[in-house]
Design a protein around this nucleic acid. Structure first.
Length: 543
DNA sequence: CATTCGGTCGAT
DNA sequence: ATCGACCGA
């Protein structure tokens, strides 16, 4: 875990904003009668009532936990409302949650650099905005502070008196505070405003942490939920961390945290203080060692990245136990569903954000029942991503077959597709990564899709989008676009210097592979030479 | 092989 | 390129 610019004197104003049981809130907004009710969102009701994905705070009062299945939740809390995750193409469809997350991000990104950290969390760097507020309109000059701000939790204040509320009000307005504290106070004002805007514009509540770095902001946002915010002044850090269980820290909830407990006897963050940086580096390597040493002191230099959009898209499904896929034909069927969803999301990303993904990756989980060596991992495979649903399907299947051959090993015991083959696929997913903005130059864009899409032209760009990105178009071309409204690439074709080839350069595999499986008739690898990403001299300015 | 379905990042 | 750790609803 490398660290950017770790400094004890860090005076940035960083916030972490976290939606409260987000999936539940999304469902409650869809179905208002669920508001205030014990509610849980459930995925796949077919087995023991399905798994609980998100649990409302009302349901938590009854002892409903996320680790429960639907049936258990009903036992503990018979009146609970179980809402199913939407299903499309036979699998969970998370698009409503993704879109709701985007709504929230568009609000939370108004006041400073914003990093979308997950479907429902962001980090904000509010340093600039807080400095400006401190200069122009500092809290100490305010006559009254809004109720939302006074309701903040400020760590380290509780024990300083009896009236917690008055303490908070005083902390926010004291003129003799350190500059760091004043900056955090301004940050808390800004975050309270943002949270109010989120509530007004989306009906969602969220919680937040305000601190001098990402690590502490994240820690604080979870301390008071729901719909509250927590400030971590510099002076409160050491006391906060001294007794904090090590597993509560982000990045230490897994194996590394366990190793700290078991191997070093470290149970709280404070326990880490006794180890020198060199010692920690001996155990865990240079980067992780330094990161741990800094973490023990509440130091974390990670920058808030500017990122409102995800770096990858994926679509996957598990096939547990007896539902494991046993034939290539059934794998192909499900792969097609997954690819359709992925392709749809890629099209949306293209239209809404003008971004293109460059790599397609297939992941699978498999078992071999006969083999003693049954625990081998099914290898992931990737190839250049060609746009168009059918191309994606084609390439994904090829990647799977390449992976399957490798998985089954060298000599392939003549596995016929429609028989119990000794293997089963328990999980499949396709993902698209290396997503980059389309550079200016519509000619390239059109060429790009022309090259990939001539058999299945499905890409539509609005005329506005095309023109925005089309500095290279001649006026006459713009006219054509404008009158056209929506255009398919087919209709663009006349303007494009047509390229030759684009053949079917699929090469057939060696014969010894071909009879392996009736379902595996099409045996070919994604052709790297014909793929746009790696074909030199074929179109595309940006490759 | 039964928490499902996403995501991010670093190591190699 | 591929894997694995980690996070979270």
């Amino acid at each position: 875990m490398p660290v950017a610019r770790p400094e004890l004197s860090d005076s940035r104003v960083i916030a972490h904003v976290d939606m409260d049981c987000f999936y539940v809130q999304v469902e409650q907004r869809k179905q208002q009668s669920l508001r205030g009710q014990p509610t849980a969102v459930v995925q796949y009701n077919s087995w023991q009532g399905g798994g609980l994905i998100a649990v409302s705070y009302e349901a938590r009062k009854f002892g409903v936990k996320r680790s429960m299945r639907g049936d258990e939740a009903k036992q503990v809390c018979p009146e609970i409302h179980l809402v199913q995750v939407p299903v499309a193409r036979g699998k969970a469809d998370l698009n409503t949650y993704r879109n709701a997350g985007s709504e929230v991000v568009s609000i939370l990104s108004r006041r400073g650099r914003c990093e979308r950290a997950s479907i429902d969390e962001v980090y904000l760097d509010l340093t600039i905005a807080a400095e400006a507020m401190l200069a122009d309109n500092p809290p100490e000059c305010l006559e009254t502070i809004s109720e939302d701000v006074v309701q903040s939790h400020v760590l380290g204040l509780e024990e300083v008196g009896s009236d917690a509320r008055e303490n908070v009000r005083h902390w926010f307005t004291r003129s003799d505070a350190s500059r760091r504290d004043k900056l955090l106070a301004c940050g808390a004002f800004i975050v309270a405003e943002l949270r109010l805007q989120v509530l007004e514009e989306t009906e969602f509540t969220c919680s937040a942490g305000i601190a001098h770095n990402k690590m502490l902001a994240k820690l604080a946002s979870g301390m008071n939920k729901p719909a509250q915010q927590t400030v971590v002044p510099f002076s409160s850090i050491s006391k906060l961390l001294r007794t904090l269980p090590i597993k509560k820290m982000k990045q230490l909830g897994g194996k590394l945290g366990t190793s700290l407990q078991i191997d070093l006897g470290v149970n709280t963050v404070g326990d880490l203080l006794q180890f020198s940086e060199e010692k920690l580096q001996e155990y865990y390597g240079v980067n992780t060692g330094s990161w741990l040493w800094n973490t023990a002191r509440g130091i974390n230099g990670e920058e808030v990245k500017e990122r409102l959009l995800p770096n990858s898209h994926g679509s996957g499904k598990t096939f547990p136990g007896p539902r494991a896929l046993k034939t290539v034909a059934s794998v192909e069927k499900w792969l097609n569903e997954l690819c359709e969803e992925l392709s749809e999301r890629l099209q949306s990303d293209l239209e809404q954000n003008k971004r293109i993904a460059h790599t397609l990756t297939l992941h699978a989980h498999a078992y071999k029942s006969n083999d003693a060596d049954s625990f081998r991992k099914f290898p992931s495979k990737s190839c250049p991503l060609r746009y168009g649903t059918s191309k994606i399907k084609e390439d994904a299947l090829s990647l799977f077959q390449a992976g399957l051959r490798e998985y089954l090993g060298q000599y392939n015991v003549k596995i016929s597709g429609n028989q119990k083959s000794g293997w089963g696929i328990t999980g499949l997913s396709v993902s698209a990564s290396k997503i980059a903005a389309i550079p200016s130059g519509t000619r390239s864009i059109m060429n790009y899709f022309h090259n990939q899409e001539e058999t299945f032209p499905q890409v539509k760009l609005s005329s506005e989008q095309l023109i925005q990105d089309a500095p290279l178009l001649s006026p006459s071309e713009e006219d054509s676009l404008e009158s056209g409204g929506h255009l398919t690439l087919q209709s663009l074709e006349p303007w494009i210097a047509c390229r030759e080839e684009n053949e079917e350069t699929k090469y057939s595999m060696p014969l010894d592979r071909q009879e392996e499986d009736k379902d595996t008739c099409k045996e070919k690898l994604p052709d790297k030479e014909t793929s746009i990403c790696s074909s030199p001299g074929t179109s595309s300015y940006w490759f």
